[in-house]
Design a binder for these strands. Structure first.
Lengths: 230, 230
DNA sequence: AAGTGGCGTGAAGGATCCGTGAAGACGCGG
DNA sequence: CCGCGTCTTCACGGATCCTTCACGCCACTT
């Protein structure tokens, strides 16, 4: 999760950066409103922490300019207790308003709340379609002409690796490390058996492959191209 | 725009009602957490104002129960300045936290901000129907061909998690963390026993499952599709 | 033309996981 | 203090899955 901090006081930038990074966030920090707007466009952060008392542009102006191209959640930080400032910032498009000095605990909680709301932006692959075959990575469900297929964990993981690297040649060693773990790399018999059951369940033949091609001595390759969603 | 007010003090309910109605909102007001959860299910409000100091149920519990079936924005009103209360409420699923006494102007602005970002979300039905099985998430009531079923708290929570993620494959670890808490993740025997009693009470069989499918080595999946409401 | 290595098939042993039944541990209210 | 409901834990038979081996087949090398 990327967080953009916009504040003109360096010590606050540093404090926020360390606290946020300690909680696993990726942090970018700038000191002016102008830079803030540009950074919001360039970095595509998942959340924006914005100080209202910036030297160059007014805070509400920054919000408005960001809102012109992005729906990123904005939490405003400000020393001003003034009601009209809060109202103006919120109506300009801010998502929350925290007055300095603030408790880090509370800020983190409000940050989590804001991120949770914007959650459904999961750019997860919807479902990959190859002819009558459908692979739903999110639900971990594979169907063939409508009928759900039952895949064992290893089978599914192998299929997942293949379809997410379609067209690429995947070597034996790479596949083994990826599916079985770091300690593996020479057990090509594992691959043979699982590629076989996969081909069987997916309705592919080794002699005339439409999905999985074996590259002798090297590895395997998923050749089917995903069709566009309806 | 419909706003649901949950507060045990009648004068605050009245004050909020008049102020909100003066600004064009449609207002429903109740005095207990229990009524609040039911009203959130029945009225399908666009926003919820919730007092934390309710006489019957704890405020965070109200939020959690509402979050089981609805994504409606919740703004918490509270006299408690305590940081841990804020954090708990926000992490339970609240969208904002305002401490009493509050300025009406600010509350209205936060309300507008919450409504603006909630956008067009489809109202999830508070009661799900699967054949002769009905699950009322708001009332925490499960009936099978009309007969009410008695579920223990853990059983109900497990069922709730399953039906609200229908079709998805839910990992052992994910389910354990979700139902039992963060500290768990390996106790698959818990899952086995509770899945068993659930299947028994819901009338499902492990051999020929119509509701809960076990994915060996991975987790469980709720396969029944919710029918449209009458 | 014979040899060799890699691949596809079939099948089987063993480890792991699941469903089932039941019993002890715990908290709560009478 | 005791009974009740709920949660936790254990043991075991059976199903599932992972691993492994043996055997043809083909392509390529020698």
């Amino acid at each position: 999760m990327k967080v953009l901090v916009v504040d003109d006081e360096p010590q606050i930038r540093r404090a926020l950066r360390t606290s946020l990074e300690a909680h696993g966030y990726e942090v970018a920090a700038v000191g002016t409103g102008e830079e803030g707007v540009l950074a919001a466009a360039d970095h595509q952060p998942d959340l924006m922490l914005l100080d209202l008392g910036l030297p160059d542009i007014d805070g509400t102006e920054v919000i408005a300019r960001v809102r012109a191209f992005s729906e990123v959640p904005v939490i405003v930080l400000s020393v001003r207790e003034n009601q009209s400032d809060k109202v103006a910032a919120l109506d300009a498009g801010a998502d929350d308003y925290v007055t300095k000095p603030f408790a880090m605990e509370e800020l983190l909680a409000r940050l989590r709340a804001a991120l949770r709301r914007s959650g459904p932006d999961e750019p997860t692959q919807p479902t990959l379609t190859f002819g009558d075959l459908e692979v739903d990575l999110a639900r971990r469900l594979v169907t063939r002409s409508g009928e759900p297929l039952h895949l064992t964990p290893t089978e599914h993981q192998l299929l997942e690796v293949l379809v997410t690297h379609q067209g690429k040649l995947l070597t034996h060693q790479w596949l083994l490390r990826r599916v079985w773990g770091q300690g593996y790399g020479t057990e090509t018999t594992y691959l043979r058996t699982y590629i076989r059951t996969l081909r069987k369940k997916l309705g592919d033949e080794a002699a005339a492959p439409a999905l999985i091609v074996t590259e002798p001595g090297v590895g395997y390759r998923w050749i089917a191209e995903a069709e566009a969603e309806a």
